[in-house]
């Protein structure tokens, strides 16, 4: 399959994530949208890595291409940690306010 389809899919997922972050008020959905954005990046990284790995003649390119895959793993780990912390914060908020409305956080100024 050509690389461009992966890119289209990644962009679509990313934009969907952004739209979710910007428009939704439920904080769990916002967290999910953030995860979606992370995963879209992962998808593109892996796709490019695969593309370059098919070109086996250049040892340097192969080396660099492997980095894309290892980055993908890192991002998964970071995403998982982030979800843990985010969910914990949301849970604390929920205990205090009995809602998961993101506008509760509009107090960052003071």
């Amino acid at each position: 399959m050509e690389i461009k389809w992966y890119i289209f899919l990644g962009i679509t997922l990313f934009v969907t994530g952004i739209a979710g972050v910007l428009t939704r008020r439920n904080s769990i959905i916002v967290l999910m949208s953030v995860e979606l954005m992370l995963n879209s990046v992962n998808l593109i990284l892996v796709a490019f890595s695969k593309m370059h790995l098919s070109d086996r003649k250049n040892a340097f390119v192969v080396n660099v291409a492997m980095d894309g895959q290892s980055f993908a793993f890192f991002i998964m780990v970071v995403g998982a940690v982030e979800v843990c912390i985010g969910l914990a914060i949301i849970l604390m908020y929920f205990r205090n306010t009995r809602s998961v409305d993101i506008n509760f956080l509009n107090r960052l100024k003071n």
């Binding site: 952004i18 972050v21 910007l22 993101i102 506008n103 956080l105 509009n106 107090r107 960052l108 100024k109």
Partner: peptide
């Protein structure tokens, strides 16, 4: 710009 609203911060970042 420092409104304190999460949404506007995210929007600005984007």
């Amino acid at each position: 710009l420092q409104s304190g609203q999460l949404g506007s911060y995210v929007l600005l970042m984007v």
